[in-house]
C-alpha cells in the first residue's frame, strides 16, 4: 500500500538514487586529482560570500553604502565576491568542457550548470542596476535599448529600480540557489565523469 503513496515513493526514489554515502562521500575515484576540480567548490564558496554580504546590504537598504563606511566595505565584499564567483565559474566551465563532462548520462548536469551560468549573468546584471549611483544610471539607459528591441523590455524594465531590486534580492537568487542545489545533487548522483582515455580494462586491472 505504501508503494502508492507519493511520500513513500519519493523517499524510496531518493534512497535509491542518492543514498547518504553518495551525498556526502568520504572517497572519490582515484582520477579526481587535479587542481581543476577545486573550482567547482570555490564557485560555491564565492556564491556563499555573495549571499552573506548581499543579505547585510539587503537589510540596510540599497542606498546605505553611499553614506556608511562600513556599508561601503560590505559593498566591496559583495563586489569582489561576484568578480571571483565569475572567475571561478568560468574556469570550472572550461574545465568541464575539456573533460567532456556530459559523457555517461551527465547531459542534464551540464545543462543545469550552463543554465546557472546564464542566470548568474542576469542576476549580476540586475545587481549593477540597483547600485543607485552613476554606473546604474548609465547601465539602465544603455541596456534598455537591447531589451526593448527584443520585446523583453516591455516586461523586464531595466530603468525600474523597484522591479530590478526585487528581482535581484528575491526571485533570481532563489532560482539560482535552487538550480545550483540541483546541479550539485546531480553531480553527487552520477559521480565525477571518468577520464576520456580510461575504459573498463583500467578498472578491471585495478581489481
Amino acid at each position: 500500500m505504501s508503494q502508492k503513496m507519493w511520500t513513500a515513493r519519493a523517499r524510496e526514489s531518493w534512497q535509491k538514487n542518492l543514498p547518504i554515502e553518495k551525498l556526502i562521500p568520504d572517497t572519490q575515484p582515484s582520477y579526481v586529482a587535479s587542481w581543476i576540480y577545486v573550482f567547482g567548490v570555490l564557485t560555491i564558496a564565492a556564491l556563499s560570500m555573495i549571499v552573506l554580504s548581499g543579505l547585510i546590504l539587503a537589510f540596510a537598504g540599497p542606498a546605505w553604502y553611499h553614506t556608511s563606511s562600513f556599508g561601503h566595505w560590505v559593498n566591496s565584499l559583495h563586489f569582489w565576491s561576484v568578480q571571483l564567483f565569475f572567475a571561478f565559474m568560468v574556469i570550472h566551465l572550461w574545465g568541464k568542457f575539456w573533460m567532456a563532462a556530459w559523457r555517461g548520462n551527465r547531459f542534464k548536469t551540464w545543462v543545469s550548470g550552463a543554465v546557472v551560468f546564464v542566470l548568474s549573468i542576469a542576476t549580476a546584471f540586475t545587481g549593477y542596476l540597483i547600485q543607485t549611483n552613476f554606473d546604474s544610471q548609465w547601465i539602465a539607459f544603455e541596456a534598455k535599448d537591447g531589451f526593448n528591441s527584443a520585446g523583453i523590455g516591455a516586461f523586464f524594465n531595466v530603468t525600474n529600480l523597484g522591479q530590478m531590486l526585487l528581482l535581484h534580492v528575491a526571485f533570481l537568487p532563489a532560482v539560482l540557489g535552487l538550480l545550483t542545489l540541483i546541479h550539485v545533487l546531480m553531480v553527487r548522483k552520477r559521480g565525477v565523469v571518468p577520464p576520456i582515455d580510461a575504459d573498463s580494462s583500467n578498472t578491471e586491472a585495478a581489481k
Binding site: T27, Q28, P29, S30, V32, R103, G104, T203, K207
Partner: peptide
C-alpha cells in the same frame, strides 16, 4: 559509453567533502 555511465569500479582515494 557504458563504462562512463556506470558507477566507478576502479581505485578510490580518500575525500573529505
Amino acid at each position: 559509453e557504458e563504462f562512463d555511465a556506470k558507477p566507478w569500479a576502479g581505485k578510490l582515494r580518500k575525500y573529505d567533502i
